[in-house]
Each structure stands twice: as C-alpha cells, then as structure tokens.
C-alpha cells in the first residue's frame, strides 16, 4: 500500500504542475467566477440559471481535465523511461497502475473542490447568502460529478494501457459523450414498442457495456428525467456504488492489459 501511495503522491504533484491542465483549470475557474455577470434573468431565474450554468462549467472543465490528465499518465512514463527505474524496484505493475490512477484522481478532486468552493463563494456573494444550510447543498452535485469524473478517468486509464494517447483522447471522450448524451436516446429506443428488435438488441448491448454517466447528473431534470429521487442519501449511495463498481472493473481490465504490455 505504501508503494501505491508513494506513486500516487508523485503523480499528484506532477499533475498539478502540468501547464495544460492548469490552463484548463484556470479557464474553468474564470467561467465560474464570471458566471453571475452572464445572467440577464429575474432574481429567481438567476439563482437557478447561475447554479445550473456554473455546475455545467465545473462538469465540462472536470471532464477535460480527467481525460487530458489520464491519457498521458502511462505513455509519458514509458517515453521518459521513468517506468523502467520504478519497475526495476520491488514494484508490481498493478501497484504502479493503481498508484498512477489514484494520484490522478486526487489531483482531479482537488481541482474540482477548488471550482466548487468558488461556486459557493460566488453564489453567496451574488445572493447575499451567508447561511451554511443554504450554501452547503451546492456541494452535493459536485460530489457525484467527482465519482463521474473518476469513472471517466478510469475509462481513459483503461484505454491508456492499450492505445496511443491521441486515440485514447477521442475514445474516452466518445465514451463520455455516448454515456452522457445518448444514454437517454438508447433508453427510449429500448423502451419504444415500434423499435426493430435488432436496434433494440444493439441498444441493450451498448447500454449494458457503457457506463451510464447520466446517473450522476441529478441536478438537471431535462437531461435526466428519470432521476426521481425519493431518498436522496440512498440515491447518492447507489450511484457512488455504481460508479465504484465500474471503476473497479475498468481498472482490472486496464491492469490486465498493462501487465501484458511490452515497452
């Protein structure tokens, strides 16, 4: 475990220094910061739009950070030969792989936490709101986003053991898009009586393989109409468990591929 933590710590320290990630993070922060100035709606609408828009910014920025950060994690180590000095030590490939992933997720989590903190500050300032009870719920959605982005990072990590970074970028981005935007479409296809059985079978197949990223988008009923949350705690727990289960499966597949990879 100590080996994994050492690798994670180094990965984290390196990730937060990567210029490209820092730029994406700064752009995200800037948009979160200027969000109030973009609204021309009524006070009540403003509150909803501000939160929705800012959460969208956090989600988009985090998705970009998750992919850009993860696709280069393993290839960079191979290209720079650091992997050879590490694997020549008593370090198993599995430990290296998990350590890299955890370091990346920690960096991602820190950046998401910073954006969420800014969202709360901006909201408090704009709404003249100082009550913790009113402000704390704003942090709920980003918690599920963090699971969502950790899942996306696991997708990219899994692919990084098999394909080149540029291919991985589009592949992981594609999985995220399909899992987010087309999840509802596939579900409709599956449930529609008039759909051809072959199309239905295909939809079932895709839905059963791809992670449903929509499961973590609880704040937007337009995107996620089926998310009728009766028991919020149970929903959060089940979504987290769903995300963690997918992450575990993806990491296991990635580890098997990485263990067989020659470099």
């Amino acid at each position: 475990m100590k080996v994994i933590l050492s690798i994670a710590k180094t990965t984290f320290a390196e990730a937060i220094r990567r210029k490209v990630l820092f730029i994406i993070f700064l752009i995200g922060l800037t948009f979160v910061g200027i969000a109030p100035g973009l609204s021309v709606l009524s006070a009540r609408q403003e509150r909803t739009v501000l939160v929705g828009f800012t959460l969208g910014i956090i989600q988009l920025t985090s998705a970009l950070i998750a992919i850009v950060l993860t696709v280069y994690l393993i290839p960079n180590e191979i290209e720079r030969r650091t992997i050879y000095t590490i694997l020549s030590k008593p370090v198993r490939r599995v430990q290296f792989f998990v350590g890299k992933y955890l370091g990346a997720v920690a960096a991602l989590g820190m950046m998401m936490a910073a954006m969420t903190a800014l969202l709360i500050l901006v909201f408090a300032w704009q709404q003249r709101e100082t009550s913790i009870a009113q402000l704390a719920p704003l942090a709920k959605a980003p918690v599920l986003y963090f699971i969502q982005m950790s899942l996306l990072a696991a997708v990219a990590m899994c692919f990084s053991a098999m394909v080149q970074p540029i291919v991985n970028f589009f592949l992981s981005g594609g999985v995220y898009l399909v899992g987010t935007l087309f999840g509802t479409v596939f579900q409709t296809l599956q449930e529609n009586q008039g759909t051809h059985p072959a199309t239905k079978a295909f939809a079932t197949f895709v839905m059963s393989i791809l992670p449903n990223f929509n499961r973590f988008n609880v704040q937007n009923p337009i995107i996620n109409p089926n998310a009728q949350i009766g028991n919020e705690a149970a929903y959060y727990l089940s979504s987290t468990a769903y995300g963690l289960a997918y992450i575990a499966v993806l990491l296991i597949i990635g580890m098997i591929a990485f263990d067989r990879r020659e470099f």
Binding site: T82, T85, S88
Partner: peptide, 12 residues
C-alpha cells in the same frame, strides 16, 4: 538496481 540510458526524473 537499474540505471537506464538517458534517464529522466520527475523534473519538479
């Protein structure tokens, strides 16, 4: 132990 050709270490 191993010292690879043209090694690179985490620059930070």
């Amino acid at each position: 132990s191993y010292l690879p050709e043209k090694p690179y270490y985490y620059e930070h």
